[in-house]
């Protein structure tokens, strides 16, 4: 695609812009900001990727991955700020997922150890993990709130903090991973996944594209489950103090 073609695509920004103006939806400003941001951010990423691919240096790959983890942590921690040490808990979770998946992928030679593979896959996984952690933290907050009576009952009967929070934890883990699992059941029937579509448009063999998509799907399943389980077990202790009492003021904030 040439830059001329790219500029023609701005038509698709102008349509919502004028519709919004006509119907007084008040979305004009946001449309423009969104368009400008995506142009700048994506082009920047494109050039950075080009540079990293050409340099063929692992330092840059690692740097890119660290950057992604940093951005994801930054984004997700806003949802769980009042959990003690949420920042490092997120860092540990995302890093663990990255290391686990990449060592399996590269170790078993499923993908070649090049930037072209490592970076986009890491991006998808870390991004997914970020969305899931936000989903999980939200859900965990409301489960703990809803099951406060049960939690207190178990504590008064001499149960441990983990026992008292067990049902909330499991419900939140289940609830936050179900969307990932469900969406994968209908994948390909309703809409083609974005990555696969992109590959096919760029001229890749559809079967190759499907195989890669499958790889991603399975990876996303793993990330979803690991993210919520790890984050769950890392974050529940901060709901209690050292006397095994529920800390009321220190709720997980939405």
């Amino acid at each position: 695609m040439s830059y001329l073609n790219l500029s023609l695509t701005l038509i698709f920004v102008l349509i919502p812009f004028f519709l919004s103006k006509h119907f007084k939806l008040g979305l004009e400003k946001d449309t423009v900001i969104a368009a400008v941001r995506s142009i700048i951010q994506l082009l920047a990423v494109g050039y950075i990727l080009q540079f990293v691919f050409e340099s063929e240096s692992y330092i840059f790959i690692i740097l890119m991955v660290l950057l992604m983890i940093g951005a994801a942590v930054q984004n997700a921690r806003k949802k769980g700020v009042s959990i003690r040490g949420i920042t490092w808990k997120l860092i540990v979770t995302y890093s663990f997922i990255e290391i686990l998946t990449q060592s399996i992928l590269i170790g078993l030679k499923i993908i070649p150890p090049t930037a072209q593979y490592i970076i986009p896959i890491s991006g998808m996984l870390i991004g997914n993990s970020m969305v899931l952690s936000i989903l999980f933290l939200n859900r965990f907050t409301s489960e703990v709130e809803n099951r406060r009576d049960e939690t207190e009952l178990i504590l008064t009967l001499g149960g441990t903090t983990k026992q008292s929070i067990h049902h909330s934890l499991m419900a939140a883990i289940r609830a936050s991973t179900i969307p990932t699992i469900e969406s994968q059941k209908t994948i390909g029937l309703v809409q083609l996944p974005g990555m696969m579509s992109g590959q096919i448009i760029a001229g890749a063999d559809p079967v190759q594209a499907v195989m890669f998509q499958l790889l991603i799907i399975f990876l996303l399943l793993t990330t979803a489950v690991i993210t919520s389980i790890m984050l769950g077990f890392l974050s529940y202790p901060s709901l209690f103090n050292e006397r095994m009492q529920l800390i009321k003021s220190n709720k997980i904030k939405r």
């Binding site: 009576d149 049960e150 178990i154 008064t156 009967l157 009492q245």
Partner: peptide, 24 residues
């Protein structure tokens, strides 16, 4: 009370709460 292990304390000082909470 601070010298008790919290679990031990709660088993020794039983409580029937004002609200009868049942587990599933």
């Amino acid at each position: 009370i601070n010298e008790f292990d919290p679990l031990q304390l709660r088993r020794e000082v039983g409580i029937v709460l004002q609200k009868a909470v049942m587990i599933n």
